[in-house]
Computed example of a mutant assay.
Amino acid sequence: MRVAVIGGTEFIGRRVVERLAERGDEVLVIHRGRTEPADLPPCAHLHVDRRDFADVADQVRAFAPDAVVDSYALSRADVDAVLPHLPDVHLVLLSSVDVYRVWELLLADDDTPVPLPLDETAPLRTGRYPYRGRGAGLDDYDKLDVEPAYLARGGTVLRLGMVYGPHDQQRREEPVLRRVRAGRTRIPVGAAGTLLTRLHVDDAAGGVLAALDRPAAARGAVFNLGESVTYSMRSWLKLVLAAAGHEAELVRVPDELVPADLRLTRALAQHVLYTSGRAEALLDWRPADPVASIAASVRWHLDHPPADASADFSADEQALNGGAEATVAHHR
């Protein structure tokens, strides 16, 4: 199979490229050229800023792809710059479960009851641009501006959960691992009862391959991709600690004392729990055991610590000193 991947040098797109190359597919990676890992498998590269995609459309068509994977369409402008210039082949779009109404309620700290787990028919957000004004540089981001155009072209939409694993720029485990590296034996947390469905990057890439391999079932369809088992934040913290081979107490403190980088352990208004039954049934996709996936991710991140890791634990000390009457949950 000949596959063009738009944005394939960093996290999820990178793993898609690696998986395609591993099985012998011919891959064209279309990216800005700012990040070109030396260990990326041999494949063709086409450097272009997304907004200038029309300038290389002839080169993309000359590659004669059987499919195109768009791993980095974030806004309506991203769609308008690329989609009209793509050949009439199977399209796979990476999207997010943040399109669902429950995500909007979570951000608004609104505890309106939501039936769980979510499937692909769950209500979508009523508001737009969920991260506008939050300082994340995503003011125009909205997958609800992206998905409809790809679906209208018969594309496949993969809604991903909280993706983690090697090369994760958000470093999901770092709030725990920076304390592990510092030898911290007491970690202040909130109730840590929230359920957030996660997805290892290898399973995300596997979902892309499954959609590419079953175009008849995948075309024009939406699929949630997430792990089949979801752990509470407390249980996830314990799994990360166990994978790191580190013993620490998870000390319950009031929410207002929880350090900012552990904010997901606070009492949140909503769980984000969803099912991937449609992908399992129609694409024959199966996620790996999350315990093994977490362990593999932790090992990678311990071996590749961030250069700018914070060594400031003053917020921890303040929380631990202010929560002297807190209950303690031991990690054994």
Rank of each mutant, 00 (worst) to 15 (best):
L105C: 12
Y129N: 12
L106S: 13
T112K: 01
A211T: 07
L105I: 02
V99C: 08
T185C: 07
V189I: 15
L199W: 09
R128W: 03
A191T: 12
T126N: 10
G155L: 03
D168M: 13
V180P: 01
Y129E: 11
P148W: 00
V157M: 04
D111R: 14
L158I: 06
Q169Y: 13
G206V: 01
R134G: 12
R181E: 07
A204D: 00
A149H: 10
G135R: 08
V208E: 05
G155F: 01
R181N: 09
V146D: 02
T126F: 02
R128F: 04
R128E: 04
R186Q: 08
R132I: 12
A149I: 01
G161H: 10
H90N: 10
V157E: 03
D145I: 02
S96A: 08
P115K: 05
P113G: 09
A152L: 07
T156N: 02
Y150E: 04
V208K: 07
V146Y: 06
H167R: 15
E174I: 05
Q169V: 13
Y164L: 10
P175L: 11
L93I: 05
G193Y: 11
L107R: 14
L160R: 03
L199Y: 09
T197K: 12
P113T: 06
A205I: 07
Y150R: 04
L199M: 04
P115H: 08
A192V: 05
G161Q: 05
T156E: 09
T197E: 06
V99Y: 06
R171L: 13
W103Q: 11
V208R: 07
L94Y: 10
E147A: 00
L116R: 01
D140S: 14
T194Q: 15
G193C: 02
Q170S: 15
V99H: 11
V89G: 06
K143L: 01
R132L: 14
V176N: 09
D140V: 08
A182W: 08
G206D: 04
T126A: 11
V208T: 06
